[in-house]
Design a protein around this nucleic acid. Structure first.
Lengths: 350, 350
DNA sequence: CTCTGCAGGGAAAACGTTTACAGAAACAGA
DNA sequence: TCTGTTTCTGTAAACGTTTTCCCTGCAGAG
């Protein structure tokens, strides 16, 4: 008689529960949702059956029947980088707090791969799709991104840009930024206030939004203090430890340094530079002052003065805004602050 | 006439594509799957319609109709810890390579939360559910885990244990471990070979599988070199930087150290200890040798001798085994190796 | 004693796919 | 020309939920 295969191994379905409890599937659904009046006796029967069969709903079936997928997706360059990991942690925390599961994808910084993954994510109908990290901001990028935003919007997902410039009020996307320019300005000002005027800007990455903003802050601070911006002192390349190390080695090999302080575009660049300096027999901050950016692990171990970014809060805010903001294109900018440690020596006389 | 709501904003469905291409939905599905012969002309029509409508499949609908969810889930204590982040990165890489999306959940190390999340994950029907990290291994734990393994197995998900002891051949679970005992043995032997006999073991965490194994390796090395294991030199507490720092401060405050080397149960404990040592005016390795474990970021910046763990490979192997192993309970143990840096001074005469 | 209204519960229609099962067209062999 | 394969395509039945109707009692109002 039983036409439904009741494979003893297979997961119990709502139908099995209904059968065992002697009620209809609709009733089971209602008991589980708790959103509809149900007689206490019935409720008890259903609850018992659920426990006996070790039943859990099928998330896909639920998502299919008009419900949200209860999922938040985040796209980052790599999990294996403290800065992104912290943001991901914030996203995960807030997602969990809101009863969502968290889909994490990595792109390795490749825009094409980002697009590919975004397409994959459209299939998932996540509540939010969170894009993290800087990007080379050209017309092509804005065009493609606007289109992604539209399709995502159409399928009920909200697009969130974290640490990446807003696409403007015409594109349905949440933006959560932190103020790179102000941070770089404050950090450079700190160096200037300690008497450093020959400050090397070292790191990434021309065209990248984050980097451009930091460089802008650096230049503005110099300008406002009447210090000429020597192009020789702007060594642009990439983010990350290897670049910091290699570039600093090259600079030191070329002769005695024409600078007294180094502004690493992030803590890893600074860490690489510190390593190269030490290998050259120079001490930090004795012979050279060094500052970083982001306040991640190396900054602590190297006692690096740096700019602290509320990374986890960025992630949490992204999720909160995506899930609750009525505004279609909210835009918040989080503040940062300089953390003073021991990698800068004052050149002022006591 | 149109009874289906064709909400202009809503995502296009396979039916919309079929209609526009003038074929049946089955044909569209077949073109997309590419698993069945289809006339070139038809294929072209469908492809065009797909492009025109910007169609993507609904992952939930697909998963519901007997397909795999094309998803891999990983449960870790926190993303925001280099060691776990690397494993997660490995999982993500391999998952992406196998066309899977990656669901990341964090537990904060709380076993109850782990159980709750596991239940949530059962709803998702992921191809694999990967549990990472040490655990207090008692009867209760084994019982609950065996049950989880069973339900996961029943719903078609494979359970994978990474860096956590196997549940035995009766429980359907993949195990991917690395050899903590051998690593700790090798690391301790290195210290002994450099003439250190009074070696402080500092860190976590009594009862935790990982910690117990490391302590065992430490003790075995001492025993085999005929060095008595002084209980005073085993200061057990937790993993992480704060414990290393606090414990070392306390030890130093109690009087001149009765040891010449410190074995941190992980790099963070070691980093905390180094900080406390430096604050007390002691230099590493001049006045005190220090080693860590895991080879994560602080180890590099502090030039810490440590044990390298193939973390990404752990993650990749976990996914590979889960997706392809025919064996129901495969068990692999990955090797580790000591990385020599500059935090250990030899006490042998030259 | 009839009417209204509501608590409780069932039947069935979505949701968007995949995949039997079956049918039609084309094509070869006789 | 007939028949038997291929090669393609369509119909419809799952998959496991939620939710909209709709139906039954029963309590209180008139």
């Amino acid at each position: 008689m039983t036409r439904k295969r009741n494979a003893p191994g297979g997961r119990a379905t709502i139908r099995d529960v209904a059968e065992r409890a002697g009620v209809s599937v609709a009733t089971v659904s209602r008991v589980l949702a708790g959103t509809y009046p149900v007689a206490p006796a019935t409720r008890a029967k259903v609850t018992r059956a659920v426990a006996a069969l070790d039943y859990v709903v099928n998330a896909h079936a639920r998502a299919l029947s008009g419900q949200s997928a209860k999922t938040v997706a985040i796209l980052i360059s790599t999990v294996d980088a403290a800065f992104y990991a912290k943001i991901a942690q914030g996203v995960e925390d807030q997602a969990a707090a809101e009863g969502r599961l968290c889909l994490v994808c990595t792109t390795g910084g490749d825009p094409d791969r980002e697009m590919a993954v975004l397409k994959l994510l459209r299939e998932q109908h996540a509540d939010a799709v969170i894009l993290v990290g800087a990007v080379v901001e050209n017309e092509e990028y804005r065009r493609r991104m606007a289109q992604v935003a539209q399709s995502l919007h159409a399928s009920g997902s909200r697009l969130v840009l974290v640490g990446r410039p807003s696409l403007g009020p015409d594109v349905p996307a949440v933006t959560v930024e932190y103020d790179n320019t102000a941070g770089a300005y404050a950090l450079t000002s700190h160096l200037l206030s300690q008497g450093h005027e020959r400050i090397l800007y070292l790191g990434g990455a021309p065209g990248h939004s984050t980097a451009e903003e930091r460089i802008a802050g650096y230049r503005r601070a110099l300008a406002e203090h009447g210090v000429p911006a020597d192009p020789e002192l702007q060594v642009l390349g990439m983010f990350g430890r290897p670049f910091g190390y290699d570039a600093m080695r090259r600079l030191l090999a070329a002769g005695p340094p024409a600078f007294t302080a180094v502004f690493g575009s992030d803590d890893l660049v600074a860490a690489g530079a510190v390593q190269a300096l030490r290998e050259a027999g120079l001490s930090v901050p004795g012979d050279m002052s060094v500052v970083g950016y982001n306040d991640i692990s190396p900054a602590l171990d190297l006692q690096l003065t740096t700019v602290h970014i509320p990374s986890e809060e960025l992630g949490r805010t992204a999720v909160r805004l995506a899930l609750h903001s009525r505004d279609l294109t909210p835009h918040v900018v989080l503040g940062t602050h300089v953390v003073i440690r021991e990698s800068v020596r004052s050149r002022r006389r006591a």
